[in-house]
């Protein structure tokens, strides 16, 4: 049985003018020790996927489908039960290390908070654990190190603190939502290395969310390409990179700086030069046909009228497109 199994997950918001769908029937699994990438432009629903798994969706959002952790459906749990899992079995790393840490508490306190809360450790034991965790993510762990406040740390150091917090209780699933986007190039590489090393030694399942195909290539075993709330292409990372089938995946690839697969510029926020247009707003998308059709260089009449079918290409590699590329 897979550690984490998401099937037919849809997330929508109730608004006065009807429901807006952010995620549409997405399904995937993450196994123990497996690293799964979720890639797409901002606004396509990546973060909503993460928040849905963590049970931290905004109050107005409705999630349907199932999210099973070891066979237990998380969507049926109440908030108290979810609180018991969050931080202990499910952990998350956020995009902005600058704001993810509480500015008025020391990092030692914040790292120790999780183990004190879940494992009921006393102040002293929690402090020892915090020191171990902080040392493990490569930060000075002495009294000096633990007593520092977030504003005294660099962005990369803060992200290490966030990672230490996520690791505190030895979670089974680690969700990393754009963990390196806010960091500079050299720091990005270090943080990714740290994540690889930790998930490998701990046998965690990693769900890595990013807009950057370079990071996906470096980090993941399997990958999914998300566009406007739907998975348009999925498969083993190597397989997908060998034979990119969806025009959107190809567009993402073409948008990478050619020289370097690992990084994508200092802040990773360049627009996708190769794909004209923008991701449609959720209220506009998912009406008829393929959501990518308006930006697609290959779109035909049928792309605009009916939803493209899910086509299996290779073992485990499938695409939702009428005109998959590279298949002859």
């Amino acid at each position: 049985m897979d550690l984490l199994s998401v099937s037919n997950l849809s997330v929508g918001f109730d608004t006065p003018s009807g429901q807006i769908r952010i995620l549409d029937q997405i399904s995937f699994t993450v196994g123990r020790g497996q690293s799964v990438g979720l890639v797409g432009e901002s606004g396509c629903g990546k973060s909503m996927t993460a928040l849905a798994i963590m049970g931290l969706l905004p109050v107005a959002a409705r999630a349907t489908g199932t999210i099973k952790l070891d066979g237990q459906d998380l969507l049926t749990l109440d908030d108290t039960a979810m609180s018991g899992l969050r931080g202990r079995r499910l952990a998350m790393i956020f995009q902005e290390p600058m704001t993810a840490l509480n500015p008025v508490q020391t990092i030692g306190h914040q790292v120790a908070e999780g183990v004190r809360w879940h494992l009921g450790l006393g102040r002293r034991a929690a402090r020892r654990t915090a020191a171990e965790l902080v040392a493990r993510v490569g930060l000075p762990a002495g009294r000096q190190g633990l007593g520092r406040y977030p504003h005294e740390l660099s962005g990369g150091q803060r992200q290490r603190v966030v990672i230490a917090m996520a690791l505190a209780c030895g979670p089974d699933i680690l969700i990393a939502d754009e963990p390196t986007t806010a960091l500079d190039v050299t720091t990005q590489g270090q943080i990714l290395d740290l994540l690889v090393q930790i998930t490998a030694t701990e046998k965690m399942g990693l769900l890595l969310i990013t807009h950057d195909l370079g990071v996906i290539a470096q980090m993941t075993d399997r990958m999914m390409v998300l566009y406007a709330g739907r998975i348009v292409e999925t498969g083993p990372t190597a397989g997908v990179f060998n034979a990119m089938a969806h025009p959107y995946t190809r567009g993402l690839f073409a948008a990478l700086p050619s020289s370097d697969l690992v990084t994508s510029g200092p802040r990773g926020r360049e627009r996708l030069a190769a794909i004209p247009g923008d991701v449609p707003a959720p209220s506009e998308a998912l009406q008829f046909g393929c959501a990518f059709a308006p930006r697609c260089p290959l779109a035909e009449t049928r792309c605009r009228s009916s939803e493209p079918p899910q086509i299996a290409l290779q073992a485990d590699h499938s695409v939702a497109c009428f005109r998959p590329q590279g298949q002859t």
Binding site: S83, A100, N102, G114, W117
Partner: peptide
């Protein structure tokens, strides 16, 4: 609405605990 409150929730703190330990002091 701050990120660090969401971080606290992701650590497993209940809404009330996150409220008093993280939101109120700030």
């Amino acid at each position: 609405g701050e990120d660090y409150v969401r971080t606290a929730r992701a650590k497993g703190l209940t809404l009330n605990a996150a409220l008093w330990r993280h939101a109120v002091r700030n």
